[in-house]
Simulated scan of single mutants.
Amino acid sequence: MTPPSAITPESGPVEPPLRLGLLVGDGIGHEIVPDTRRVVDTAVEAVGRDPITWMELPIGFDAIDSHGTPIPDETLTALEGLDGWVLGPHDSAAYPAAFRGDLTPGGVIRKRFGLFANIRPARAHAGVQATVSDMDLVIVRENTEGFYADRNMHIGSGEFMPTPDVAMAVAVFTRAACERIAHTACRLAAARRGRVTVVHKTNVLALTTGLFLEAVTDVARGYPGVHVDSEHVDAMAAHLVRRGGDFDVVVTENMFGDILSDLAGELSGSLGMAPSLNASASQAMAQAAHGAAPDIAGRNRANPTAMMLSAAMLLDWLSDRRGDALLARAAERIRRAVADTLAAGVATADLGGLASTAEFTETVGARILRR
């Protein structure tokens, strides 16, 4: 990373201090999260804003070793007093057996803080081979209900077994939650290309996804500049492959959104490039869409793009909430630097390149300093 003496700050007003949580997580999180912090610090300093105060908090395997649990109470308590946080990937499938039936650390945080909106952009970049070369969409995923049994019950899981040979799950849809995510999607579309596509399965799940479709359509009438259409989820998967560039903002329930956003990430180049923001009206968490990739952890081969772009999304969210234009400028510098780095052919192994994690980060950091 270029030393601070090489930075010529942009002029701007003095803004209040910003305190962010840093949760490294498992696997490649130990590489991509610290590198993302360095990139964010470089961008914030480059635009002339006071440095961010980071609070590193235990989570995942590190927390099991130090606190006997992957998500300590002290971590959750500390998050309450912060402006936002960056969460690395977790490898909960590999946790000791005592924790495998529990909510994942990310799931606990989302539920604790009511992070109802999961915003997942998918965009093709110059220099990266993509199945859908003109893709530039955002999937808005309702993050608290739907067909995720670990999130839709007040206490415990929505899965149950009346006999050892029968397993069942409950899906929950409420009009309030559907309307809340509809407003998020419509506001986002109004700032983009003005189109919302509602994804559902009303031909089979008429009551549950039917309520979702009805609620989103009703809310959208209050946004006269936004055009709304709808697709069944199976058809939508095919459309993303065949004509993913036609879509702008896609809004859907929890599980459909998880599946479609992973598909869109791969179609636009790689899941390693897929950023994600989890947000409520008052708090937000940057979290890349991919996993902990334990097979390459510690080998300096991980792609930090998704984590960096997720952090840029957090800076944008904080900019809107706090009225802090410098944070938006810092976010734009990160996005532009990542795009320019990829366009120049600097890429990690998952994209067919030869750059290490450290080399990619160094290049992004240097490009952030260019006006």
Rank of each mutant, 00 (worst) to 15 (best):
P3G: 06
S11R: 10
P17T: 00
D26F: 07
I28Y: 09
I32M: 09
I32W: 02
I32H: 12
V33E: 01
V33F: 00
D35A: 15
D35R: 15
R37Q: 15
R38A: 14
V44G: 10
P51T: 12
E56C: 05
D65Q: 12
H67S: 03
D73L: 08
G81H: 04
P89S: 04
Y95T: 00
P96Y: 12
P96H: 03
R100T: 12
T104V: 06
T104A: 14
G107Y: 05
I119H: 01
G127R: 11
Q129H: 05
M135S: 03
V138N: 02
P162N: 00
A176Q: 00
R180V: 04
H183E: 11
H183D: 08
L188A: 01
A191C: 06
R192T: 00
A206D: 01
A206G: 05
A206S: 06
L207Q: 07
A220T: 11
G222T: 02
Y223H: 10
R242V: 15
D246S: 14
F247H: 14
D248G: 04
V250I: 15
M255V: 15
F256D: 02
F256A: 06
F256H: 02
D258T: 01
L263C: 04
A274I: 07
A279Q: 06
S282T: 07
A284E: 14
I296Y: 02
N300Q: 05
R301F: 04
M307L: 13
M308S: 04
S310E: 03
M313I: 05
L314R: 04
S319A: 14
R322V: 14
R322D: 14
D324P: 14
D324W: 13
L327P: 05
A330M: 13
E332L: 12
A337L: 11
T341S: 13
L351M: 15
T357I: 08
A366F: 01
